[in-house]
Amino acid sequence: MFLVGVGVWTWVIWPRFGLAIWNDDRAWRSDTPTSFLWVHALLIGASLAVGTAVGVLGVKALRARSRVG
């Protein structure tokens, strides 16, 4: 359940953080994305990928546990 919780938490927190970065004045210069935006987008994408993988592992573990007994 912990792994599933981490996966869900990741999808609750990181998109909100992404929106905050998107709206930050440092993210844009003359309607062009800055490295501030690109670095944070990469970090957010990596975190969502890891969180998804952890959540999937948690679901698989729960399913395997229910099959065993």
Rank of each mutant, 00 (worst) to 15 (best):
R16T: 08
A20F: 07
A61R: 15
I21E: 00
T32G: 12
V4E: 00
P15R: 04
L19G: 10
V12C: 07
F36R: 03
V12N: 03
G55E: 13
W11P: 07
R16L: 11
A49D: 08
G45L: 13
G58N: 02
S30Y: 15
R26K: 09
S30P: 05
L43K: 15
S66V: 15
A64F: 01
F2G: 02
P15T: 00
R65M: 06
R26A: 09
V68T: 10
V39S: 10
W22N: 07
A64L: 14
L42A: 11
L62D: 06
L3G: 04
F2P: 02
H40S: 14
G18M: 07
N23T: 04
F17K: 05
P33H: 12
S35K: 10
D31T: 10
T34D: 07
G51T: 03
M1I: 08
A49F: 03
F2C: 05
T32W: 09
V12Q: 08
I13T: 04
K60H: 10
A20T: 11
S66C: 07
V4D: 07
V8F: 09
S47H: 13
L42V: 01
G58Q: 08
A46T: 09
F2D: 07
L37M: 15
R63A: 13
V39A: 09
R16D: 11
H40D: 13
K60S: 05
G58R: 04
W22V: 01
G69L: 13
I44A: 10
R65A: 13
G18V: 12
L19R: 05
L57C: 08
I21M: 04
A61V: 12
T10G: 10
G7T: 14
V50Y: 07
W11T: 03
A41Q: 09
W9G: 06
T34R: 10
N23P: 00
L37E: 10
R29Y: 01
G5D: 06
L48H: 00
A61E: 08
R67K: 14
L57N: 06
I13R: 09
L19Y: 02
G51K: 03
P33V: 13
S35G: 04
V68Q: 14
G45P: 10
S35P: 07
L57Q: 06
A27K: 14
V56A: 06
V50H: 00
A49K: 08
L43Q: 14
